[in-house]
Measured scan of single mutants.
Amino acid sequence: VQTVGQWLESIGLPQYENHLMANGFDNVQFMGSNVMEDQDLLEIGILNSGHRQRILQAIQLL
């Protein structure tokens, strides 16, 4: 089972590990259960829309 940090590294966005972990997104399986939306990522400080889309697309593959 991948950690959130390993998963972010695999999609090329390791800089957001602290954003996700500090806001309770600390379990890759949980994130894959379709609980995260674009607005959630924006609210936790991921401002780059391309990065948000990449995260959301990768979540669909979990």
Rank of each mutant, 00 (worst) to 15 (best):
V1D: 10
V1E: 06
Q2V: 11
Q2I: 15
T3V: 02
T3R: 06
V4D: 00
V4Y: 00
V4F: 05
G5R: 14
G5F: 08
G5S: 09
G5H: 09
G5T: 07
Q6K: 13
Q6V: 05
Q6A: 13
Q6H: 08
W7G: 02
W7V: 05
W7P: 01
W7S: 02
W7D: 00
L8K: 00
L8A: 03
E9Q: 08
E9R: 09
E9N: 12
S10H: 09
S10C: 07
I11L: 10
I11P: 01
I11S: 02
I11W: 01
G12K: 04
G12M: 03
L13V: 04
L13C: 04
P14M: 05
P14R: 09
P14G: 09
Q15I: 03
Y16P: 00
Y16E: 01
E17V: 11
E17T: 13
E17I: 09
N18T: 11
N18Q: 15
H19Y: 09
L20W: 00
L20H: 03
M21R: 07
M21D: 01
M21C: 12
M21L: 09
A22R: 12
N23A: 15
N23C: 11
N23Y: 08
N23S: 11
G24S: 04
G24N: 06
G24H: 05
G24T: 00
F25T: 04
F25K: 04
F25R: 05
F25H: 08
D26Y: 08
D26A: 10
D26M: 11
D26V: 12
D26E: 11
N27K: 11
N27V: 11
V28I: 13
V28L: 15
V28D: 06
Q29T: 12
Q29H: 12
F30S: 15
F30R: 15
F30Q: 15
F30M: 15
F30E: 15
F30Y: 13
M31Y: 08
M31P: 07
G32Y: 15
S33E: 15
S33D: 15
S33G: 11
S33R: 14
S33Y: 10
S33Q: 14
S33I: 10
N34S: 15
N34F: 12
N34I: 15
V35F: 12
V35L: 13
V35Q: 13
M36C: 12
E37R: 14
E37D: 12
E37G: 12
E37Q: 15
E37H: 12
D38V: 03
D38W: 00
D38K: 02
Q39Y: 07
Q39T: 11
Q39H: 12
D40L: 07
D40R: 10
D40I: 08
D40G: 06
D40F: 09
L41K: 01
L42Q: 14
L42F: 10
L42G: 01
L42K: 13
L42I: 13
E43A: 13
E43M: 10
E43W: 05
E43V: 07
I44Q: 03
I44M: 14
I44L: 11
I44H: 00
I44T: 05
G45E: 03
G45A: 01
I46C: 03
I46V: 10
I46G: 03
I46N: 01
L47I: 13
L47F: 12
L47M: 14
L47V: 14
N48P: 05
N48V: 06
S49C: 11
S49W: 09
S49F: 09
S49Y: 12
G50S: 06
H51P: 00
R52F: 02
R52H: 02
Q53L: 10
Q53R: 13
Q53V: 09
R54Y: 01
R54L: 07
R54D: 06
I55V: 05
I55D: 02
I55R: 02
I55T: 03
I55L: 11
I55W: 02
L56K: 05
L56V: 07
L56S: 05
L56G: 04
L56R: 07
L56A: 05
L56P: 00
Q57R: 11
Q57W: 07
Q57A: 11
Q57H: 11
Q57M: 09
A58P: 05
A58S: 11
A58F: 01
A58D: 04
A58Q: 08
I59K: 09
Q60W: 06
L61W: 10
L61K: 14
L62A: 04
L62W: 07
L62T: 05
